[in-house]
Amino acid sequence: MALTDRRRVNGPALPTSIPFYDTPAPAPTVSRSPTELRKIFLKTSLTPPASGSAFYELTPPSTLKLTTSVYGPRPLPPSAGFSPTARVTAELKFAPFSTRGERRGYVRDGLERELSLQLQIAISGMVRASAYPKSGIDVFVTVLDCEGRIEEMIGVDAAEGEGERASLGAMQVLTGAITCASTAIADAGIECVDLVAAGMAALVEAKDGKDMVVMDPSPLDGWQVRAAVLVGYMAARDEITLVWSRGEVGVEEFTGVMESAVEVATKVRGVVNDAVRERLVALLKARGKKEGKKAITEDVEMTG
């Protein structure tokens, strides 16, 4: 205290925050019908050095934005060991600015590790790995913007209902990541047995107290979510590559929710198809093939 300058007005010893008067956020309202899907913007080949890449965005008010780049097939590092088929690895990373409020650290955390693993399971089934011996295909997904809250994925300490809704944020990121990654792999020209598209559906408590199934639920919608199911689905082969469910749900109800999720994935597949075909159209144009122009329209209207 002796060293304190008492002749002048000193600033505060610790930093203080500016008083900031914020109006409380309006309560979330449900604006979509339970069977209406949000529109998806999906574009390929935006990262030049990558073999293939894609950008995924949901139309406002949803804010989810992702980019994916695919590298490979390239030689495996000696530490990886011998593999007679291609080894598909996936890494999902949240950008530091991707979450609302608090910035995320650069260090890989548990959630990123979990989502990376799920993503890898979902997409490795679609690549024709036997065509690429001794090589690695690396998929990198960067989440640029999230929707809703991500942190309380499990919802341990959250209020009733709130916890499951919070987990929707993480599930939605994975839904987007699977769709985006599958588009980027197809864009790279890697042989695939089929394309994976992801879809999500939730069992929610309606106003009358009954349960109902909502397709493509958003954490911003404000549903009282009881359970949510995410599927990675290959529509042409009618094959599910990944199922991820959260919340409590009975067996019969689960089947219903999953079927809805598959229906969402089938519709999303249409968007993936259009996005992948876009580059083909450009190629045909470059070649000046007239029959190509006849077969495909130049602009593709992407609907979810």
Partner: peptide, 11 residues
């Protein structure tokens, strides 16, 4: 044959 095809499309 179709002019273009995508992965998983039967020919």
């Amino acid at each position: 044959l179709p002019t273009t095809c995508l992965p998983g499309q039967p020919l």
